[in-house]
Design a protein around this nucleic acid. Structure first.
Length: 560
RNA sequence: CGGGGCGUGGCUCAGCCUGGUAGAGCAUCCGGUUUGGGGCCGGAAGGUCGCCGGUUCAAAUCCGGCCGCCCCGACCA
């Protein structure tokens, strides 16, 4: 029985003063969530229903690929975290118990689940396995933000696969791809599966599931047939108009012009006609020079992947000692490996001359300097993939899948004996989904000026009945009956039986965003009808009172 | 961690600059009225002005410290 008169649904006319994101404002206003502290939120009854519907979709689709649900504790001893090498992560909450033993609050569960596997799995016959749980995660985020989009405590579905080899991992990964695709289809969200960063610590592949929305913290590059996180996106650069080629580089006086913008405007050359140098020190040792077009930007993640190592920008002193005067450096004549970005097309470019107040014009890669080709720039809107233009959108990461390999099984000693009696490391994958982010992304994607408009599968209730009429009235009696009938048909119903005016009830219903709103009022009832409003688009139709419940149930099945 | 902002009744805010009785709208409670778009009339209750200290005859207001929250950036295993 969910009668609004006795329900805890504290709606507000005004959004919280400090809210910016649409989902933050609307979820608080609609009475779904309340803040406890920075990055700490309570889910009120209606909000929790949404969260649990998302969780249930996840559960069903994971069970369908043979995953087994379990539950692991949030409070962990420090020891496995020390073994995995994750004890020193800043985001990890650390504490001590009464005996002064080091404890942590889990930010994920690779350590714990791998520990169980290490203890239990002995033989190749025990594999493969898919285990998951839906459990609280604690992360001491440097900056929680935007309501439930980025919090310090949140619930995550995390699953883990255990296989005997790389092929097994690939199969387990493919199963998760199919399950995740179905999950996000069922949520009703607009979503993309994009290539993600595998991280330089290893990993054999990763994808992220991204839901485009204004409050998203990530950027994704999209083109027909292509979707990637901007961190790793790759595309063909747009051409740039270069000056005619010359036989050999010509030195130009460019006093004080140390920036791309200055040189470009003074010489009348587009920024893309310049090659800029980005000297880096790789792994604390070797100096290298990355060259890319003046209108492009280095993508540190792609560069790290290309180098297969950590790096840092070279200091001004290192540049001055080994290359030339900062602001005027270039690839010609330097005794350093040069990495040339793929966005640099054939032609003559302007570069630093390695001499104060001078640049070279007409420098051609290959002719005037040798290089190794790399792809280390950030994609920009308008670049192309297979001839299709790239657009860039903000998006929220609602899920991720990751081929871990043997990183954890090695450190936590999870191995098995193969057919030949040889000990082998177990190959792992890990896979996360945040139900709270699914809920928030749905709010972001479908809200209008009236409030939230839930996809049918996530709504806190399928139908909201608004009754206009006093106690004991004919309208009330009809609405009471309708409420029972709809529930008997398997729909979840919120019944606004409050003693409030129509305006307030309509406004609250539209704010909460259940897919259908039924209005039972004296006027329409007199003509043998009730009003049915579809929240998405706010279109209304009249439904005859005879067979109203069945008609509503049928209409509900047609909704997005 | 760097930069910016905010903290006054349940919510949104004014008051602070220029020190002197703590306010408004909404919400709440009581009575009445109204019932298809947050309606109306009358009455009432509700505030350690984030905390600590200082200046002063007197501090929401000025000064110092602390705490909390938000935004931008960095970070995000």
């Amino acid at each position: 029985m969910t009668r609004l008169s006795g329900y805890f649904l504290p709606t507000e006319r005004e959004p919280p003063a400090d809210a910016e994101a649409i989902s933050h404002k609307l979820m608080v206003r609609a009475g779904l969530i309340r803040q406890v502290g920075a990055g700490l939120w309570s889910w009120l009854p209606a909000g929790w229903r949404v969260h649990e519907r998302a969780a249930q979709i996840i559960r069903e689709e994971l069970n369908a690929i043979g995953a087994h649900e379990m539950l692991m504790p949030v409070l962990n001893p420090a020891e496995p975290w020390r073994r995995s090498g994750r004890y020193d992560i800043d985001e990890l909450f650390k504490l001590k118990d009464r005996r002064d033993a080091d404890m942590v609050l889990a930010l994920a569960h690779e350590e714990i689940v791998t520990g169980h596997i290490a203890q239990v799995v002995r033989s190749y016959r025990d594999l493969p396995l898919i285990l998951y749980h839906i459990q609280t995660k604690e992360r001491d985020e440097p900056r929680p933000r935007a309501g439930v989009l980025r919090t310090r405590e949140f619930i995550m579905k995390d699953s883990y696969t255990f296989d005997r080899d790389r092929e097994g991992l690939e199969a387990a990964y493919a199963k998760h791809v199919s399950a995740y695709d179905r999950i996000f289809d069922r949520t009703g969200l607009e979503w993309y599966r994009v290539e993600g960063d595998v991280g330089y610590m290893g990993g054999f592949g990763a994808h992220e599931y991204m839901a485009p929305c204004a409050a998203g913290e990530n950027e994704i590059a999209l083109a027909d047939g292509y979707a990637a996180n901007m961190e790793v996106a790759s595309a063909d650069a747009q051409p740039v108009e270069l000056p005619p080629r010359v036989n050999e580089p010509e030195r130009l006086s460019t006093p004080g012009m140390t920036t791309v913008a200055q040189v470009a405007s003074e010489l009348g050359v587009p920024a893309g006609g310049l090659l800029k140098a980005y000297p880096v020190v790789v792994d604390g040792g070797e100096l290298r020079m990355v060259m890319l077009r003046g209108d492009h930007r280095v993508n540190d993640i792609k560069l790290r992947l290309a180098l297969q190592a950590d790096f840092r920008p070279a200091s001004a002193e290192e540049v001055a000692d080994r290359i030339g005067p900062p602001g005027f450096i270039g690839p010609v004549g330097v005794d350093l490996p040069v990495l040339l970005d793929a966005g640099v097309l054939d032609g003559g470019y302007v570069t630093g001359a390695n001499v104060v107040d001078a640049h070279l014009r007409g420098v051609e890669p290959g002719r005037d300097f040798t290089f190794e080709r790399v792809d280390v720039r950030s994609v920009v809107a308008g670049d192309t993939v297979n001839g299709h233009a790239v657009r860039i959108q903000p998006a929220i990461e609602v899920g991720n899948i990751f081929k871990l390999g043997t990183r954890y099984s090695e450190r936590l000693e999870a191995s098995y004996l193969d057919e030949h009696g040889h000990s082998q490391l177990i190959w792992m994958g890990s896979y996360g989904i945040g139900p709270a982010r699914i809920a928030a992304a749905a709010v972001e994607q479908f809200a209008d000026e009236k409030g939230i408009s839930w996809p049918r599968t996530l709504a806190p209730f399928d139908v909201e009945i608004v009754v206009l009429g006093r106690e004991e009235s004919q309208e009330r009696r009809f609405a009471d009956g309708l409420y029972e009938e709809l529930q008997a048909l398997g729909l979840s119903v919120l019944y606004d039986d409050r003693d409030a005016g129509p305006g307030e009830k309509f406004a609250d219903a539209e704010l909460l965003g259940c897919p259908l709103r039924l209005t039972v009022g004296k006027r329409s009832l007199a003509s043998g009808e009730i009003e049915m409003q579809v929240r998405r688009g706010l279109a209304s139709t009249m439904v005859p009172v005879d067979g109203a419940a069945a008609a509503v149930a049928e209409a509900w099945r047609q909704l997005p």
